[in-house]
Write a protein that binds this DNA or RNA. Structure first.
Lengths: 225, 225
DNA sequence: AATGGGTGTGAAATAAGTGTGAAAAATTTT
DNA sequence: AAAATTTTTCACACTTATTTCACACCCATT
């Protein structure tokens, strides 16, 4: 799998992103400032850098420019919602994409994969989850039931993958929200119900694979037992 | 199984949580104040700390900050309902989750497991209780008798697991209520009888494994002896 | 065998959790 | 700016779970 370098001055954010990305199957290095980042870049040769824009000392732009003088490793900027910043400049100095905080784990992996694919640096081994007539291509995010392609939204897909990857395991609504939506989500838990509803509907005959565990949450049926 | 450290200035609360968590299969150390907590932390190396926020002397925040200067053991705060407190500060100084008093044992174990999982410190081994033709998968909450799946409700399941985990031990109705229902339960004790009744019925031939101890309570028969 | 509290049981009353459709809000695309 | 899509909220119906209750029955002790 690919290796990432996270650069952010807030330890908490580094920890969060690290957790997210390790769960997504990446290996991760991190740095708290520009100098440290360039050092780590030389020693760990990451396939991609996630670079916070707003940092004391050298900011994301300055670090990016410096790196671009000797490396063309893909760079994704991290920026806070509402933060004023120069998107044009970001791309003109060699940024490849950007992610707005707060973000969900799924969003981040999606963007990372998109950039890596563009750079042809992703190992194309396809991870496919199968259950009866249901097949889920985790990387291309394509879902089929009975051979027919099903169109899922991002949340629906992430939810399905999480449940289907751990068949038989029961997830509470809180767990699902935390994993799929991310920690900053603050709405009600019934949102999960609605997504489960649409999922079941879209999955047609395989919709029954997602079972309700009364009083606890949901699970994907465990074929074995 | 994992080891916990409970820190609370009230001996009663320490005892209660200790009982809950030991029933849930954890081993537990405890401390009544910050100094004692850090001492116990060094000698018992817990996998997770449950830390009361409101304490005389150093409060939960101060203790957490101090611990974070040299350890990243997961910390869950305990806070009383209605108590004014700074949630943002709790997370910014390194807290991982919080639980509001009063809570049920199930709620606490759920949060502990969620945090431990996030830290990748939980062994996902399947815990299965077996007795004759009865098998209980504790995590997927699946119960079988004679190979056939049995559908239990939440209370029934929790009750069965508690009894079956400690075969031979006699539980009074009060104990069962306190452990399965939690402290906030305020109804009569005959409710237990009703659940025992449905359990026995659903467990069919294994229903006899739950015995009445006249004048005291119930127990799961002890195969040995 | 008589007594008095403890327990089993079925049915009824309450309470709690979930499914669903539709509307509102947020977001993205055109 | 408008349109389309996705996500979230909400209320109501519906299902399931939990608790209560009354009465028969059981057990241990006189």
């Amino acid at each position: 799998m690919s290796h990432l370098l996270i650069v952010d001055d807030e330890q908490d954010m580094v920890d969060l992103v690290t957790m997210y990305m390790e769960n997504a199957g990446y290996t991760v290095s991190s740095a708290l400032n520009g100098d440290e980042a360039e050092e780590k870049l030389k020693e760990s040769h990451p396939d991609l850098i996630i670079l916070d824009l707003m940092m004391p000392g050298r900011d994301g732009f300055a670090i990016c420019e410096s790196i671009r003088s000797y490396s063309d490793v893909p760079i994704i900027f991290l920026t806070a919602r509402g933060e004023e910043w120069d998107k044009v400049r970001a791309f003109s100095i060699g940024g490849d994409d950007y992610i707005v905080k707060p973000f969900s784990p799924g969003e981040m992996t999606a963007r990372i994969q998109a950039v890596l694919r563009r750079f042809g640096r992703v190992d194309e081994k396809r991870e496919t989850i199968r259950y009866q007539t249901l097949s889920i291509d985790v990387h291309s995010r394509a879902v089929r039931v009975d051979g027919a392609a099903i169109q899922l939204t991002m949340k629906e897909f992430d939810l399905l993958v999480l449940l289907a990857k751990k068949r038989g395991r029961i997830f509470s609504r809180e767990e699902l929200l935390e994993t799929v939506w991310g920690t900053e989500y603050s709405g009600g838990t019934r949102t999960v119900d609605t997504h489960i509803k649409t999922l079941r509907m879209k999955l047609k005959n395989e919709g029954a694979s997602i079972e309700t565990v009364w009083g606890i949450g949901y699970k994907f049926v465990d074929g074995a037992v």
